[in-house]
Simulated scan of single mutants.
Amino acid sequence: MSSEHTEAVATREAASLKLALQPINATLSLRDQAYAMLRQAIADADIYQTREEIRLDERVLSETLGVSRTPVREAMTLLEQEGFLRMVPRRGIYIVRKSKREIVEMIQMWAALESMAARLATTNATDAEIAKLRHMFDNFRDSTPAEHIAEYSDANIAFHQAIVELSKSQLILDTIKNIFVHVRAIRRMTISQSDRASRSIVDHLRIIEALEKRDTELAERLVRQHSLDLAAYVEKHCDFLD
């Protein structure tokens, strides 16, 4: 079988996923901009929406970004090194999706890092910074999260990211950023299942109260358990990841 035929078959079998991209600014490093935009687009995409492999087209990406293939290729090499892409000779470039076991382990790691971030936030964050967490859920005071699940999903993800940022620990931020892409995708997918959204907002408000009271031990414990509950849910219900 020729390599052209193999690639054609792989292209037909691969899932189609349109990444949210736009032309980049040629006055800055093309590789770095392409890397940042591709990484963000992968983070924003629903990479677990299908069991099929998600193949990227280098030519389409370069045309969409408005640059030659060289910076796109260099950016994808960096993303491959970070574990976001997988390059298969004579077949193409694929977005890496984790197995259920890998996702569970990522969430467990997230639980450890975010809970430490919450602990640090009780001493490092200002009252005004913590107050902003409560305002993230103002839009859901008069309705249930399930009635606005897409908006609540975004607020949910922003909430967890904000806790990490409130730690003001650059090392935690740097360590957690690659895990975030996959944990974010799973949070987005599972938030609408089994009334998880309603239970989630209750957990969030308890976490905010602990932070407001500067209760270090309670804030750390609540944040850790919140993520471990997600890990247990994925372990029990998310067989589509295998």
Rank of each mutant, 00 (worst) to 15 (best):
T70M: 15
V72H: 02
V72N: 01
V72W: 02
R73H: 15
R73F: 13
R73I: 13
M76A: 07
M76Q: 07
T77H: 15
T77R: 13
T77P: 10
T77N: 15
L78E: 06
E80N: 08
Q81D: 13
Q81W: 10
Q81M: 09
E82I: 14
E82Y: 13
G83K: 03
F84R: 07
L85A: 06
L85R: 04
M87Q: 13
V88G: 06
P89C: 05
P89R: 03
P89H: 03
R90W: 02
R91Y: 08
R91S: 10
G92N: 14
I93D: 01
I93A: 03
I93V: 07
Y94T: 00
Y94Q: 00
I95Y: 01
V96N: 01
V96E: 04
R97W: 00
R97I: 00
R101P: 01
R101V: 07
R101D: 14
E102S: 12
E102T: 12
I103C: 06
I103F: 07
V104S: 09
V104C: 13
E105F: 01
E105Y: 08
M106D: 14
Q108H: 05
W110S: 01
A111Y: 00
A112H: 14
L113Y: 08
L113I: 13
L113W: 08
L113G: 05
A118D: 03
R119N: 11
R119H: 11
R119D: 08
A121P: 07
T123D: 13
T123P: 12
A125E: 01
T126L: 09
D127M: 09
D127T: 14
A128S: 08
I130R: 03
K132G: 04
L133W: 07
L133V: 09
L133R: 04
H135Q: 10
F137C: 04
F137S: 01
F137L: 10
D138A: 11
R141P: 02
D142E: 09
S143A: 07
T144A: 10
H148F: 12
I149Y: 02
A150K: 13
E151C: 09
D154H: 14
A155R: 02
N156P: 10
I157Y: 14
A158W: 11
A158P: 03
F159G: 03
H160Y: 15
Q161T: 08
A162W: 01
A162Q: 15
V164E: 00
V164Q: 04
E165Y: 10
L166F: 06
L166N: 04
S167W: 07
S167I: 00
S167M: 09
K168Q: 11
K168N: 02
S169I: 01
Q170N: 12
I172E: 02
I172L: 14
L173W: 05
L173Y: 06
D174M: 11
I176N: 03
K177P: 01
I179H: 01
I179M: 09
F180D: 11
V181Y: 02
V183M: 00
R184E: 08
R184N: 15
R184I: 07
R184D: 14
A185Y: 06
A185D: 03
A185V: 05
A185G: 04
R187G: 10
R188V: 12
M189R: 13
T190G: 04
T190M: 09
T190F: 04
T190R: 09
S192C: 02
Q193M: 10
Q193K: 15
Q193G: 11
D195F: 14
D195R: 15
R196I: 08
